[in-house]
Structures are given as structure tokens and as C-alpha cells.
Design a binder for these strands. Structure first.
Lengths: 368, 368
DNA sequence: CTGTTAGCGCCTTCAG
DNA sequence: CTGAAGGCGCTAACAG
């Protein structure tokens, strides 16, 4: 199990020198350093994080905590973060709330975490001031993705603007009976994503003098199944809206599926716009308000990395831009049945695969 | 940073007793144990994995290594494993090959891993005998998901049978001009998933006396984009097949998208069957050969956990069953245009959402 | 049943 | 620039 002493012996130096040489610390002659590195490579020596962590208090790992450790959104964010962290040798540990939660503590078991990670990314978890205090008491860099909490650096999108953007698009197409799907009191532990998007929706409706119709609003989780249920609910309540704003692409997909299965054409009979630009959304030709998911993970990771290196990134809130992507599930109300034979070259954004890996080629966002 | 000594002092016992009491080791009176637990809880004490790992050599973490740490398939498997591991307090570390690979070593850096994990799950990585040897030299339990390698316990599905099953379905519907999409020499590092599925495809074609037509076989990665490209390729090569077997659901989705965008009806003009039962496949009404993805992760995790506890699970190969799920993208060739108005109650498997979480409610598979 | 005592492998002052 | 030595927090014999 070749340890540091083996390397030291083989290189004819002390363990202290090996330690310094391998970690790139100053105070080692270039010659010695090279020699040590050679021996280390030859022996396949790698320092044990456990052993290295004892004296330093650092673990070489960062945690990513989310309500559940499942699903496209959380996975994609974690992927973005993971890629940035492992590029510099950090391990990342994912925790679903159920894993970290104990009977006594409501949210994150800071005692457990402090001993395991050097820094923490908190996803979609709105914490109470007390919980924030406990988190900060860990004395480790923490960054949140999603909810803005006083004292905690955050990466987010403007959810109200998301709602405006989607609704504005529908309004501009001429829609006035616009449905809204999303928002479940038990979902996301109270994190106001859906409410914010709904507010944007209502604002834009207000601007064009439309009174939001409660019959056109249905709740639901961020799942395709909710879209199916929402469609059924719309139908139950009376005439369908001419367009629907779903707070996530998965909901939108379920909605479209249910509508088409029921003989309702999308977008001719009903337009649908979602949010996220899910990896598979282009397959549905789904019009959506795209948010850079993996990139948010990466931004958070880089900010944390900077702070781990002593960078004094304050508590800024970084808002990354979202962008409406018009594809093929939205059209003016009562639009004539398209022949679905768009002329070559006029294909537009609706049909081909996306130009690259999703949200990976977007313009960089500055991290203050 | 409350350590074991604090607990010991507060409880009026020695650190050894605290250690024993908290880890459930025998040789502690119930009274003492309760007292210690109370104090530990009160102080919010949690043992440091780093410190605990030094004497024992155990890290309390397991690794999951895959070609890339991205995408639905690997994420879902990792989720299944993660859930089982974190239920018993293990952390899981994910590594994409790029993270673990060094210039010198072709695949897994065992030196790096040995110091970081107690056990390893290897996903879709076919290793050479030398690499297997290096892996086993780690002296840590290793299990693979996918490729069968001598000396390594494996969880897998029968890919040849997958190919047979999909093709048989199409043949039974009456198809004879059946296309095949999948298999890229650079994909999956040579792991013969696609080839095996193709073999099953060819076997069944042979049974009905059909000579496989090279023009009907196109390569591609396990991505929806490949499905789009495959459709274009089919078109380029001449008359479309009446049915296509795609080696993954994502490919199938891309294929369907491309076909429909081109005015080709699915399944009326062309049937499509995929593999996986991707979380979103039901939205496409996709007929598929379902494999329990998360469950394979869970099975592997449980087997590893058993071995970590000293269970002497040998090197068995566990083959989990797959199952054809007929939905709405397959039909007899030249089938009349469906009205898509299935009579209520006769709806079949094609339209509603799946009954529960995907592949989570399947019957349990025994782990020898 | 409980306490004492060495380390586990590495980092980090402090000398040299 | 380099070496020696103590200690990080916990576990694992060994005594008692």
C-alpha cells in the first residue's frame, strides 16, 4: 500500500520533503521535486485523503445536497458541478434530503456534513434563518442554487422573468385564454419557483388586461405525470385554454402527450410552452424558456473552488440569463393545421437536434 | 468541533467505550450505551470518517466508475446504487473515466481509488485481463454492471435476448424489412452491447428466412441525435424499412422525431422499437424492451454491501430479466391510419403514465 | 464490561 | 532548502 515513507526512502529524502514536493509547496529545489515526483509516479503513490485530512481538517470532497438525489434537473446540475470539481481533484458527494435528515434536525445535518465535506452546494432548498445559521456555523463555504437566502451566496435564474417571458410569447401570438400548470404546496419544500413563475404569468396577463381565470390554473409537481393530470383537470373544468404555460418541460411533455392522445392538436388547438430546455425537449419540438442547468452547477462549483482557495467571494447573487426558445408547440390561436412539411431551409428551430451539448456552449457568465 | 473525547468526558467514560457504544459493538452495558448515545446526540457528535478510516483502512465510501458521468442511463444506475448505499451510511463517489484516467494508465487508476473507496461499481467498462488484475489487486470488492469479465462479479441483462425479443415482436407483426440502428466502434469503449443486440436481431431474422440487408443497418451512439442521423441515412440509402429496431430508447426517440418531421407516420408507415424503457419513453408511446436500470444499480450495491460485511458472495453473474413493453410505435406493416381514438377502456398500454416509479416496483431478483 | 495505550498516514511547526 | 518530531481523531489490541 505504498505510503509516503516508501517514496521518501526510495527518493532518499524525508517524508516532509515528499509532502512538500508533491503538493507543489515552495521551498523545494526543482531537482529534488522532480526526483520525488518521478519516484512517486514509479511507485504509483497517491496520498490518502483520510490521512491527509486528519491534520488539515480538509477532506478533499464537497457535498451537493438536494431534496432528492434523483431526476433530470438535479442530476444535470450535479453533473455540471461534478465536472468542475473533479477536474481539480475534488470528490463530490451527493445527498438527498432523506439521507442527511435525522429525526431531530429538519434539514441538513451540519454535524454529519462538516466532517465529510470542505464545501457545500445546496440545491433548491429554502432554509429558515436558523438553518442558515447552522450551515454557516460549519465554517465552510456554502453556495445555493435557486433560493436566495440572506448570508448565502446564490446562483439563480429570474423566475418571475421566466414566467413573463413564456407568457409574453403566448400573448404576442394572440392568446388570451392561457392556462398555467405548476405549483404544489408539498413540492420543493416551499421553494417558490412555481409561484414566482406564476407571478410573471399574471403580470403579463395584467398588462394586456386579462383577468387571470382560476379555472385555468392547476397545480402539479415537476413531473410529466403532472402534465397528464393537468390536462385531465383542464378538460374537466370546461373548455380548454388555447395555450398553456407549464412551469417545467417535463410537465409540458406530459400535457402534450395527454392532449394529443385525446385528439387535440398541438399547437393548432392548443399551444404549450415549458421551462428548462430539458435534454429531450427538442424531440417534442417544445417551445421553452431555456435555463442553463449544467452551467449553473459549474458556476457554483467554480465559485466554491475560488473560496476554497481563499478567494473572498462575498455573498453575491449571480443571476444567469434565461432565453425563450421558440420551437413548434406554440402558434397563434386557431392556426390552420400545418402540413408539417416545412420547406427545406426554412426549417427553423423546431426540428433538428440541438447544435451541441445542451447549455454547454452558452456564453460564460462572470462570477464576481 | 466536538470530538470523541468531549463525548467521553461528558459521559464520564473512556473514549474506547464511546467508540464501542456508538458503533454498536458488543461488550458495552445497555445502560452505558444509552448514556453515551444520549450525550453524543446532545453534543451533535459524529465520528470523522477521515479519522475513523485511518486505523481501519476503510473510508466509508464506494466508487461508481463509468465511461462518462453523464446521461440518463448512467445517472439512473448510479441513483439506484446511491440509494442503497446511503441508506446504510456509505457515501458514493462518481467517477467519469476522464477523472480517473491518467496519461499512463489506460483505464482505472487503482492507486487513486484504493485510498478513496471501500468498494467499486464498474459500469459498462470492459476491462482487459491486466486491468482486471489491477482492479482485484486493490483487495476491495468490485462488481460490474454490464460486461462479464472473468473474476469479477457482474449484474447484467441478456443483450442477445433483448435483440431477439425486439425483433421477434416486429416479425410477429409481419415485418420483414427491419432496420437496425446502433453500434459505434468508438462508443462504450468496445463494450459489446450493440453487437449482442444485433446478434439477437440477426438470429430472429434468420429464423424467418430473412437475409439481413446491410443497407438496413446503420451505426450510431446511444443518443437521440444518432436516431435523427440514422433516419437520414436510411432515407439516403433507398426505401425506408417498414420497421426499425433501435438499440436504445433515446435513439428510437430521435428516429421517430426525424420520421414524423419528414411526414412519415409512426407506426403506420414505420414501426420503431427501442430498448431501456427510459423515464420518458411512455410519452412517445414507445414500444421498448424494458430493462430495470435503477434496480441493477441497487442489486449491485446490495451485493457489494454484503461483501463488505464479510459475506462471501462469489463471482456469480446475475442476469436480470428484460421485458417487451408494447406501446404505440409498433404496428403491422401497412396498417391503416389509426384514428388515435381508442375506445375507452381499450386504451391498452400506450397512453397513460406508468403505474409508478420506473423499474422500482418490479419483482425482486435474488442475489445469490 | 471498561480503561489504557499504541499507532493509522500524513501535515506542519520548528530546527538545522 | 531540508529533516525531525509532535499530533490530527479515532480504532484496536491488551489489560484489568
Amino acid at each position: 500500500m505504498t505510503g509516503i515513507v516508501d517514496v521518501a526512502a526510495r527518493a532518499g529524502v524525508s517524508v516532509a520533503t515528499v509532502s512538500r514536493a508533491l503538493r507543489g509547496l515552495p521551498g523545494v529545489s526543482p531537482a529534488t521535486r522532480a526526483a520525488v515526483q518521478a519516484v512517486a509516479a514509479e511507485l504509483g503513490y497517491v496520498a490518502s485523503p483520510s490521512a491527509a485530512g486528519l491534520p488539515t481538517g480538509r477532506t478533499g470532497a464537497v457535498g451537493v445536497v438536494s431534496p432528492v438525489a434523483r431526476g433530470w434537473y438535479f442530476s444535470a446540475i450535479a453533473e455540471g458541478a461534478q465536472e468542475a470539481f473533479s477536474a481539480v481533484g475534488y470528490d463530490v458527494l451527493r445527498y438527498g434530503l432523506a439521507d442527511v435528515e435525522t429525526q431531530r434536525r429538519r434539514v441538513v445535518d451540519t454535524h454529519l456534513l462538516r466532517k465529510r465535506v470542505d464545501a457545500l452546494v445546496v440545491l433548491s432548498l429554502p432554509l429558515t434563518p436558523d438553518e442558515v445559521r447552522a450551515l454557516l456555523a460549519m465554517q465552510r463555504p456554502v453556495i445555493a442554487i435557486g433560493p436566495v437566502m440572506p448570508g448565502i451566496q446564490t446562483v439563480r435564474i429570474d423566475d418571475v422573468e421566466v414566467g413573463r417571458s413564456a407568457t409574453r410569447h403566448l400573448v404576442e401570438l394572440g392568446h388570451r385564454r392561457i392556462g398555467f400548470v405548476g405549483g404544489d404546496p408539498h413540492d420543493h419544500l416551499g421553494f417558490p419557483v412555481a409561484p414566482d413563475r406564476k407571478q410573471g404569468y399574471q403580470e403579463v396577463l395584467g398588462e394586456v388586461g386579462v383577468e387571470p381565470d382560476p379555472k385555468l390554473t392547476v397545480g402539479g409537481k415537476f413531473l410529466a405525470e403532472s402534465g397528464v393530470e393537468a390536462y385531465a383537470e383542464f378538460k374537466r373544468r370546461g373548455p380548454l385554454p388555447t395555450a398553456v404555460f407549464a412551469v417545467s418541460d417535463e410537465i409540458a411533455m406530459g400535457l402534450i402527450h395527454a392532449a394529443r392522445s385525446d385528439g387535440v392538436r398541438v399547437p393548432e388547438d392548443m399551444s404549450v410552452v415549458g421551462v428548462d430546455d430539458h435534454d429531450l425537449s427538442w424531440l417534442f419540438g417544445l417551445t421553452t424558456v431555456a435555463q442553463p442547468v449544467r452551467k449553473q452547477g459549474r458556476i457554483a462549483a467554480l465559485a466554491l473552488l475560488d473560496r476554497l482557495r481563499g478567494g473572498d467571494t462575498g455573498n453575491e447573487v449571480t443571476t444567469v440569463p434565461t432565453q425563450l426558445k421558440v420551437r413548434a408547440t406554440t402558434a397563434p390561436p386557431g392556426a390552420p393545421s400545418s402540413t408539417r412539411q416545412s420547406a427545406p431551409g426554412t426549417d427553423g428551430a423546431g426540428h433538428g437536434p440541438p447544435p451541441g451539448l445542451p447549455d454547454d456552449d452558452e456564453d460564460q457568465v462572470s462570477i464576481p
